[in-house]
């Protein structure tokens, strides 16, 4: 069996919700049935066959080829299987997913993995704002699973994050890990202003020193904590850059805050260039 592949025929006239193209909903359906599945667009309903040409038959391995930023909610609510996206994915990729794997060979829009509870999202390019946050209007961000962004992430990455891993190899925008409730975010590159803004609990690990930290974070000292060693070791499965960061066993500068709210969060900063 070969992967079930959806090749975009043309750019849709407006944004389309393609969350229906996930393995659990496609399993057991014939090519003909899949062709007729509805996809909700802006004031119109598209049929899968109108937007995509279809190849292959293994619904547990789905490929969306030639993706466009107008394709929203790719893999949203996924409950298993593999989904590969080639091209630029739109907003809310992997939103509320519970398990399975999404691999994006390209960039993704905003709110990638918003509210996700499990599974893994791996983005080879850049991610927009609010990666790993909550869906707009909700009070909690991602609550499980892992998001790996090999490029840069936009502002508010990890906003209201509740649990899980948000790993950014490149830089992150302003207000990284803002309003974080718990979980772990790692940025190997630079972060913008006010990282950890209103962070209540959780861990933010920075591979490079930020220009300045919020005044509501207190310096706790330089530590080599066992829990952080275990945490870093667990990141080695997420690629070479995390592997070399973990294996360098950095002694980390620990800052506690945000004292503007609960103050039980920690920002751990590796020594080195800002």
């Amino acid at each position: 069996m070969s992967a079930l592949k959806f090749v975009l025929r043309h750019t849709p006239p407006s944004a389309v919700d393609v969350s229906g193209l996930r393995p659990a909903l496609l399993a057991g359906k014939s090519r003909k049935e899949i062709t007729k599945l509805p996809l909700t667009g802006w004031n119109e309903i598209h049929r899968v066959g109108d937007l995509f040409s279809i190849r292959g038959d293994d619904a547990q391995r789905v490929v969306v080829d030639g993706a466009d930023e107008r394709l929203l909610r790719i893999g949203a609510g996924m409950e298993g299987g593999e989904l590969t996206v080639v091209g630029t994915a739109g907003d809310y990729l992997g939103e509320s997913m519970r398990s399975g794997t999404i691999v994006v060979r390209g960039d993704v829009g905003t709110f990638v993995g918003a509210g996700m509870r499990g599974g893994r999202i791996d983005v080879s390019g850049n991610a927009g704002a609010f990666a790993g946050s909550g869906r707009a209007g909700t009070l909690q961000g991602m609550a499980g699973g892992a998001i790996v962004v090999r490029g840069n992430a936009g502002d508010r990455a990890g906003d209201r994050m509740r649990r899980g891993l948000l790993l950014i190899e490149g830089n992150a925008g302003d207000y990284c890990a803002s309003r974080m409730l718990a979980g772990t975010a790692v940025v190997l590159g630079r972060v913008g202003i006010d990282a950890g803004y209103l962070m209540r609990r959780g861990t933010l690990i920075l591979g490079r020193s930020p220009a300045e930290l919020l005044p509501t974070f207190n310096h706790n000292g330089w530590h080599d904590l066992l829990a952080i060693r275990l945490l870093l070791e667990s990141l080695t499965v997420y690629g070479k850059r995390f592997q070399s960061f973990a294996r360098s066993r950095p002694s980390l500068s620990r800052w506690l805050g945000d004292l503007g709210c609960d103050g039980k969060g920690e920002i751990l900063i590796a020594p080195g260039r800002p």
Binding site: A182, T184, R201, L225, A227, L230, L231, S234, K264, E266
Partner: peptide, 15 residues
Amino acid sequence: GWQISKLIGGKRYWR
């Protein structure tokens, strides 16, 4: 009250 919970590799630890 200063204890921290951390989920690492699918296991929950207390610090």
